[in-house]
Computed example of a mutant assay.
Amino acid sequence: MTVLTLFGTTACHLCEECLHLTRPLEGNGIVVRQVDIVESPELLARYELRIPVLRREDTGAELDWPFSLSQLLDWLADALGEEG
């Protein structure tokens, strides 16, 4: 299982778009958890101008918005068992 953390805020329409893009991956070994950056000064300072950002908890790699479903799948290819 690969855990993705979505850094964003509750009032972010781009974060909602990102979450919608990840939904079809859930149940295929991908789990998405959301973190509201407003609740942490450190996260707010790091991600304020970048959100939404997905982070792979297995590798620490981050993917900044905007990205397409194709780019997301490429980024997760090893976790999904696909060959590049």
Rank of each mutant, 00 (worst) to 15 (best):
E39N: 11
E62P: 04
D74C: 14
C15I: 01
F7Q: 01
F67M: 01
R50W: 12
A77K: 10
T9S: 09
W65M: 03
L21M: 05
R55A: 15
D78G: 10
L80C: 03
V35N: 02
E42P: 04
V35R: 03
R50K: 12
L73S: 10
E39K: 15
E57K: 05
L76R: 03
C18D: 07
L72R: 00
E17T: 14
C12G: 07
P24C: 07
A77W: 11
L63H: 05
F67Q: 03
E57P: 06
G60N: 06
C15Y: 01
S68R: 06
R46T: 04
L76M: 04
D78S: 13
E39I: 06
E62A: 10
S40I: 13
I30G: 00
A61C: 07
V32C: 02
T2G: 07
G29V: 02
L43A: 12
G60K: 01
S70E: 12
E82S: 12
L25D: 05
E62D: 04
D64K: 12
E42M: 12
L69W: 14
V53Y: 01
E48L: 13
E39R: 08
P52D: 00
Y47Q: 07
G27V: 02
Q34G: 07
E82T: 08
E26T: 09
W75V: 01
H20Q: 13
D36K: 03
L44E: 06
E62S: 06
F67A: 01
L6Q: 13
D74H: 08
L4G: 01
D64Y: 08
G84A: 14
D74L: 15
G29N: 00
T2C: 08
P24S: 03
E83W: 12
A45D: 12
E26G: 07
L25V: 01
D36F: 10
L73I: 14
A45T: 10
W75Y: 10
R56N: 09
V3Y: 07
E42L: 12
L63R: 04
T9Y: 08
H13M: 10
A45C: 11
L69T: 10
T59P: 06
L44W: 10
D78L: 11
R46P: 12
A11G: 15
E83V: 14
E62Q: 10
W65T: 03
A77I: 07
F67D: 03
I51F: 03
N28V: 03
R56V: 08
A77L: 09
W75E: 02
E83C: 15
E17S: 14
L25W: 00
A61W: 05
C15F: 02
H20G: 10
W75L: 03
A61S: 14
C18R: 02
E62I: 00
R23I: 11
G29S: 02
Y47W: 07
W65R: 06
C15Q: 03
V53F: 01
L4A: 02
